[in-house]
Amino acid sequence: MMFKHFSESLSALALLALASTAHAGEVTVSGAWLRAVPPVSPTMAGYFELNNDSDSAVTLNGASADFAGMAMLHGTETKADGQRSMTHVDAVTLKPGESVTFAPGGKHLMLMKLSTVPPSGEVRDICLTFTDHDDLCVPFQVRHNDPNR
């Protein structure tokens, strides 16, 4: 009898643990794409949405790709008079439940020192790197146009 109660309690605890694991989500990347550029282009820009559905903060601090000698997080800022400038973004921290969108005219991933310029239609893996999370390596599709417009 006592063993039965103990066994039931263990099962309940296991279920509870399972439920909490299922509730805590993950850090995910969606809508990842690269803008198609001419083969002689020295740079490419990448765009994506990063969602933090986990229960702890994460800090994105860079990226890497096997076809780019250098990758940086950049921001495009627009001043009141319409002038635009590019700035280096050191890191982006997302609290649990937060998301950030890298989109044309705003934050973007800048790939430099390209060994090859993948053409439109190709899909290339790019790894996003974090200070407090494993790398997230996701496929970026090379496209002519913003899929969100």
């Binding site: 803008r35 282009s41 495009t76 590019m86």
Partner: peptide
């Protein structure tokens, strides 16, 4: 300028 990865290629496109 062609080294601009974000706005310039988008404008050209």
């Amino acid at each position: 300028y062609t080294h601009c990865p974000d706005i310039c290629p988008a404008t050209l496109a």
